[in-house]
Amino acid sequence: MTLRLKVLVLLVAVVLLGGVATASLLHASDRAAEKDRPQAGGPAVTDGLISLSPGGGRRIVFRNMAWGPHRDELVSVPAAAPGGGRTASGVKCLRFHAAGGTGICLQARHGAVGDTYRAVVLDAGLKEGAHYPLPGIPSRARVSPSGRFAAWTVFVGGDSYAGTNFSTRTAVLDTRTGRLTSSLEEFEVVKDGRIHHAADTNFWGVTFSRDDRHFYATMATGGATYLVRGDLVARSVTTLHRNVECPSLSPDETRIVYKKRVAGAPADAPWRPYALDLRTLRETALAERRSVDDQAVWLDDRTVAYSLPGDFGADLYTLPADGTGAPRRLMTAGLAPVPLG
């Protein structure tokens, strides 16, 4: 092959490789742009102002999951029209909860060497206050009815509740004094009437009572899960019932809705929603046959809301809390709903 021919072959190869690279970049750019555009059939989302104040009419604030420039932002819809247009706040959260004019937002911060996470206290106008580094991937968040206490759970080992190879850490913050309990594992544990010590003890899924002293949560130890009642003053927890995960206390504080592992279910989808009467400890299976891996939210004393996988990542459904009725879709592309007003 002559030198002239070799040069010609090299030039052709360079042109071809350049064309392939350009096509790849354009394809990647198109895919990125597609994520920034609202998905066809998705809800309309517009910029606006959102308040966490108790007044202002019945509404639901939640994490928007629809693709587009407002994905992961806190948005608001009227409670009477949950499928309608959404008002976006500009505040992004992976997990969120609010009550009493106070919010807790678990966020990801993207850096050159990887993601880090933090918990941010929000005021009624969604202005950031104190923030705290998180030791793992955000999982659950709750605020007490008065807004004084906030709790969050993160995965510090593993990333799913489905198996047994995971570790969590649950913190409780007094937003009034700034006192942070970095892990509920610091609390004394009373299990079956006796003081319990075990290195494998994990806690997650806090739900608060109105008295700003007591709470309920899940405790795992010895391969089993328990509903525990906690005391923030005594710094102790006491087991109440077995096979309870991610409890949610009803507004009248008479029942807990939770996810329960049921026999015969797939290993990666083992849960069904149940309600527990706190006076009698009688369980009632709710009318949802799909596996629910979520900490349900009470919309009122009769109805709970929870997420299931959907086309946008997650959709929200409602269900009567007494075992009757059937699941109903509340909205598409939503997560972590909070009823306000």
Rank of each mutant, 00 (worst) to 15 (best):
W204P: 06
A217D: 12
V237Q: 07
H131F: 09
L49S: 15
Y216P: 07
A265V: 00
Y226W: 15
L106M: 01
G83I: 00
V77F: 06
L16Q: 08
A321G: 13
A98W: 04
P135G: 06
V14Y: 05
L25V: 00
V244Q: 12
V45M: 10
S250Q: 07
L276V: 01
D301T: 09
M1G: 15
A151H: 02
R213H: 03
V20Y: 14
P145V: 00
R63H: 03
G323L: 02
L5N: 14
L276W: 03
F187N: 07
Y161R: 11
K127N: 11
A234Y: 03
L308V: 06
G83A: 01
L240M: 12
S248H: 11
P138A: 08
T87D: 08
A199Q: 08
L276A: 04
H97S: 14
P247K: 13
D200N: 09
L74A: 07
E188P: 05
D293G: 03
R229I: 00
G84C: 03
D311P: 14
P339Y: 08
Y226H: 15
L184C: 11
A275T: 01
D123G: 09
D252E: 07
G323E: 06
L25Q: 01
S182C: 05
G48M: 04
T238R: 15
A333H: 11
S250C: 04
V156G: 01
L122K: 06
G85W: 04
L106G: 01
T46W: 06
L184W: 10
Y216S: 03
L278D: 07
K6A: 07
D300K: 11
V190P: 11
W271G: 03
G55N: 09
G158Q: 07
A88D: 04
G334D: 07
S53R: 08
H70N: 15
L308E: 14
V292D: 11
G264C: 04
L180E: 09
V143W: 13
V262T: 06
Y226M: 13
L52E: 08
V189Q: 10
Y216N: 04
Y274C: 04
Q39S: 15
Y161D: 10
R118V: 13
T181H: 14
D200F: 03
C105W: 14
S139F: 08
H131K: 13
P135T: 01
G264K: 09
T2R: 12
D294F: 06
F187A: 02
G84T: 08
V233E: 13
A119T: 01
R71P: 15
T170A: 01
V113M: 12
A265N: 08
K127P: 03
P135E: 05
A21M: 13
V244G: 11
P266C: 05
S29M: 08
P309A: 10
A124P: 10
N64T: 01
A220E: 14
V61F: 10
R235M: 08
D159M: 09
D36W: 15
A217T: 13
A269K: 10
V15K: 04
T22R: 12
A88S: 14
D311L: 05
